[in-house]
């Protein structure tokens, strides 16, 4: 091949590759723009601060406070449960099992596979277990299902950060006479606190945005939940149900709800970026 042809080929692919990257950037901008453009007009304080009133689903007064609060309850509960299980597991994998490479690899492999299971399968599983125990759809059932669904995300994200901690840190703390658990919670946890925060926020984002797993298990209601055994409205389902309505006002509200959810997700992403930077200062290099 002549040099000119080679150069031309390279130039061609460089342009195509640049275009591919631009397409990805544009896709994100387009999504955010479309949602904001359609939804911002319908967002109002009433929308955020009120419960649905009579005739809400025919375009009358009311807001989606039930769904916003419901989603926050659900996602917070699930994230707390998931970190209660996830943090010890991640620490255990990295500190107690670190000599047993095969077992650790197997555990990571299983968690990765669990991460890939679609949320609708978790939803169907949760629903079947609920039926088995004779439970109705409720906040608790939804929380447990979402917890199952985010635990692999939580463990693997914390684990990825803990992998980067230098092994010398483990050895030196052990040589100073601390137990493995002390090393885990006093040293590793502090060292990885920014990673843990990011993992927590990532899981929270997943939990608040997922519709398929709560569709079966959490139900939907116009009231605020007062106990764990009551059904609860969630934001993704609020968007989904309102969008399938033929009435224009209700559809408008679906767009507005989509804006609210998008803004929540963007805030979470921003906070996790900022917190990752902030805690980096305390890290032992």
């Amino acid at each position: 091949m002549k040099l000119g042809v080679r150069k031309a080929e390279e130039l061609f692919f460089r342009v195509v590759m640049f275009l591919a990257t631009t397409v990805i950037l544009l896709a994100l901008l387009m999504i955010i723009f479309t949602i904001l453009h359609k939804g911002l007009a319908a967002v109002s304080w009433k929308m955020i601060s009120q419960l649905p009133k009579g005739g809400f689903y025919f375009g009358k007064e009311g807001g989606i406070l039930n769904a916003i609060l419901g989603s926050i309850y659900l996602a917070s509960g699930a994230s707390i449960l998931a970190i209660l299980f996830g943090l010890p597991v991640a620490l255990y994998i990295n500190i107690h099992l670190h000599k047993n490479k095969r077992l650790v690899t197997a555990i990571r492999f299983m968690l990765d596979v669990m991460w890939g299971i679609p949320s609708i399968v978790y939803g169907a599983f949760g629903f079947t277990v609920m039926l088995f125990f004779g439970m109705r759809s409720s906040l608790l059932a939804g929380m447990l299902t979402v917890t199952l669904f985010i635990i692999p995300i939580m463990i693997r994200s914390i684990d990825e950060v803990m992998k980067t901690v230098p092994k010398g840190l483990l050895e030196s703390t052990l040589s100073l006479g601390s137990t493995k658990s002390e090393t885990a919670y006093r040293v590793y946890f502090k060292q990885c606190i920014s990673g843990v925060t990011t993992a927590l926020l990532l899981s929270f984002g997943r939990a608040i945005g997922d519709a398929a797993s709560v569709l079966f298990t959490t139900g939907y209601t116009d009231n605020l939940p007062t106990s764990l055994s009551e059904p609860t409205a969630t934001l993704p389902l609020a968007i989904f149900f309102q969008l399938s309505s033929p009435i224009a006002e209700v559809k408008e509200r679906a767009y507005a709800s989509a804006v609210i959810l998008t803004v929540i997700i963007l805030i979470i992403s921003l906070v996790s970026r900022v917190s990752a930077r902030k805690y980096l200062k305390h890290k032992i290099k």
């Binding site: 950037l25 993704p236 989904f240 679906a254 767009y255 992403s269």
Partner: peptide, 23 residues
């Protein structure tokens, strides 16, 4: 691009659905 990829991965599927219906 790193934040772009992260945000794109974090957008809930229902939002993608709304975008799909609208655009």
């Amino acid at each position: 691009m790193h934040p772009v990829i992260d945000i794109l991965a974090g957008i809930p599927s229902v939002i993608f659905g709304v975008w799909g219906v609208l655009a």
